[in-house]
């Protein structure tokens, strides 16, 4: 048996394959497709203090090798999550990370406090959702504000604190460093890019146009994500969780090569609902067949190999 575990400070996973926030519901929905308890961790849909109805216009549209979403952080709210979803996750032995979305500093701190009180092992701060107008985005794009946020959350929360970064910034290194300096245990990158998807057709002398403005994700964003992880790796000590466009084991290896310690599968869950479990199995077989006993060995080889 190969050892797929990841141990980097407070980031402890039985394997490096996680599923990304907003693409995996609250996990139970996937039970018809995979054994969810096999996953390194499931990141929940963003959870806010109060339930959010989300945006009401067209919410998703396909683009070349990806999609645009403007879900608007629709979610059940923390109270209902704790009452209804948490017991299910625990009973089924599913490792999970709670993705938190506040609309201001106070809300994040309050959410973190609730997580601490309920002994939630890991949280991911969503400071980068491009769909919600107030608050959110500013935290992810300004290093000083983000630093303050991470510091305040750290004061009330002792579990594994992951900060999810947006690629929609000029100097991602500054943002990553602000998270690290203020006590984050890990960063995850990337959240969605800002984009616009359109379907324009011309029929019977008339144009029809469907469009969605929102977060761009899927296979097409992988080069951006790899670029971001690579840049972060140059400056950060804390572990980086890589995501963006991952749809195969090959993609996972690429993220390891640029320095990711673990990865998250997002949009690919929609196309192929059992993809996460398949990648775990493939990774184990690949390591077994090629003589890698631990993930660290594999990563070391991938990183040592000089790029051409």
């Amino acid at each position: 048996m190969v050892d797929l575990s990841v141990k980097r400070g407070k980031l402890i996973l039985k394997n490096p394959i996680m599923t990304a926030s907003g693409t995996f519901g609250y996990a139970d929905e996937f039970e018809d497709f995979i054994d969810v308890s096999k996953l390194g961790a499931v990141v929940t849909k963003a959870i806010s203090l109060k339930p959010r109805p989300g945006n009401s216009w067209n919410r998703v549209i396909e683009v070349t090798s990806g999609m645009i979403n403007s879900i608007g952080l629709e979610n059940v709210g923390v109270e209902k999550f704790i009452a209804e979803k948490l017991p299910v996750l625990r009973e089924k032995n599913i490792n999970f990370v709670m993705n938190l979305a506040g609309s201001g500093m106070d809300e994040y701190v309050e959410l973190a406090r609730i997580c601490e009180a309920n002994k939630i092992g890991a949280v991911e701060l969503n400071v980068s959702c491009p769909n919600v107008k107030s608050g959110c985005l500013e935290f992810g794009t300004d290093a000083r504000t983000l630093g303050e946020l991470v510091k305040s959350v750290r004061e009330v929360y002792n579990g594994c604190l992951i900060v999810k970064l947006t690629p929609n910034v000029t100097r991602i290194e500054d943002i990553g460093l602000a998270a690290q300096e203020n006590g984050a245990d890990a960063v995850s990158a990337i959240n969605t890019l800002k984009g616009l998807g359109m379907k324009l057709s011309f029929k019977n002398g008339k144009f029809s146009r469907e469009q969605v403005i929102g977060g761009f994700s899927g296979m097409a964003v992988k080069p951006v994500a790899l670029g971001v992880v690579n840049r972060l790796k140059q400056v950060l000590e804390i572990p980086i969780i890589g995501l963006g466009g991952i749809s195969s084991m090959q993609d996972v290896l690429e993220f390891f090569a640029v320095g990711a310690e673990a990865v998250q599968i997002g949009t690919a869950n929609f196309t192929t609902p059992d993809i996460s479990e398949r990648i775990i199995d493939e990774l184990a077989v690949f390591m077994e067949e090629n003589g890698f006993e631990t993930l660290d060995e594999l990563k070391a080889v991938l990183r040592h190999f000089p790029p051409r």
Binding site: G22, T23, F24, G25, E29, F30, D32, F33, K45, G54, R59, V60, M67, N69, I71, E74, T267, N269, F270, P273
Partner: peptide, 8 residues
């Protein structure tokens, strides 16, 4: 997008 009730 997902057709299984997760993406909203």
């Amino acid at each position: 997008a997902c057709s299984i009730g997760v993406c909203r």
